[in-house]
Design a protein around this nucleic acid. Structure first.
Lengths: 195, 195
DNA sequence: AATATAACTGAACATTCGTTCATTATGCAA
DNA sequence: TTGCATAATGAACGAATGTTCAGTTATATT
């Protein structure tokens, strides 16, 4: 029986390094990280991790961490499913929120929400919306639109009479733009951070 | 007058590389990226970018992209402020959503929300909550708690009689745990993705 | 047109990189 | 204990790294 080298432990260390430095460690750095005295020990270890499918290497041999390692947040089940055990944690997929939420980074912006015009859609004042600039909105997309020289969030609805902008708050009425309709972008995600 | 080297253009290219490869480019790679025929041209360019405060280098000279370059999403004003011009875009700060939302990656999980018990707090079924495992909840924190062998979201409220779990939906009543109170974690953020 | 300044090239340097090799240490089974 | 497979060491190699230096090209101003 071979000696037990705790691969999961190493992966955890690699992930930690990645999160701190935002880059893959060199062999020398891994040597210190794992407590080896030879870079070749790292080489052997990486071979195993590669066989196990935990990572790949790029053209120059540098480790290229796979999403489950790169990722910063683990995706688990639903609230109803409750909290995971230690083993479930290990196996859970992981993603970065950036990759998950932002398809088009160069055209995506964060805006803070003012006003309560979309409160019934679960968008509260102070929330942050991720807005993609450029694409034509689809039916019932939430858009950032200029109405009466002011920018607000509204549903984008096409009907027989053309286009109307509909709030998600009975306090307000829908708006049918007279001549020009300026669409800033389409809301792709809503983010609310506590504290 | 010196020749006009478009620094903003270079930064954009750097950012693009970073997003694709998830790492800083080497000098050789930057040489190709910028269309130079000498790595030393890259060296000179980096000196400028460094002077301009656009980036720093690590111990081995590798470029360490600053948050405005690293970042994936640019932070802009509020919805009321409307949409930015091209120049404003360039100057806007940028952050990664991971850094912004997740303080403690190893103890943070994503859960999908089932049920409407927190609908008045703007948390809808299907939303994703970022839950931090471990910390003691503060007054009025939203927590993932086990109630009657089922996990749900509730406000955590300490009062004279002890602790009660309060929903944000008039359809439901608050709950005062009899003996044990199991707290899975504290909700740090809510995310809603459209599509 | 002449000139000064900056951008760029190309070669060389020491260092570090990932990798290979031969050797030693370690733990498990026979 | 004796084997034996594996882990780890330490030295060496070529390639690539970031950097320096000297020289060339290009541009804007005089």
């Amino acid at each position: 029986m071979p000696r037990d080298i705790r691969l999961a432990e190493k992966i955890r260390q690699l992930r930690h390094f990645w999160r701190q430095e935002r880059r893959a460690p060199s062999y020398a750095e891994m040597m210190e990280l794992f407590g080896y005295k030879s870079r070749n020990a790292v080489f052997g270890l990486l071979l195993k991790l590669e066989e196990a499918g935990c990572l790949t290497k790029d053209d120059h041999g540098r480790v290229a961490l796979l999403p489950p390692i790169t990722g910063t947040v683990r995706v688990l089940g639903s609230v109803a499913a409750g909290f995971p055990t230690q083993e479930e944690e290990q196996e859970a997929d992981a993603i970065t929120l950036d990759e998950y939420l932002v398809k088009n980074p160069d055209n995506t912006f964060m805006l803070t929400v003012r006003g309560d015009s979309m409160i019934n859609a679960g968008i509260l004042p102070g929330d942050i919306v991720l807005v993609e600039k450029g694409p034509r909105p689809n039916q019932n997309d939430i858009v950032v639109a200029r109405v009466d020289d002011e920018w607000t969030l509204k549903y984008y609805v096409r009907d027989a009479a053309g286009v109307r902008l509909e709030p998600a708050n009975p306090k307000y009425r829908f708006i049918r733009p007279q001549r020009s309709l300026e669409i800033g972008g389409v809301v792709r995600a809503v983010i609310r951070k506590y504290n």
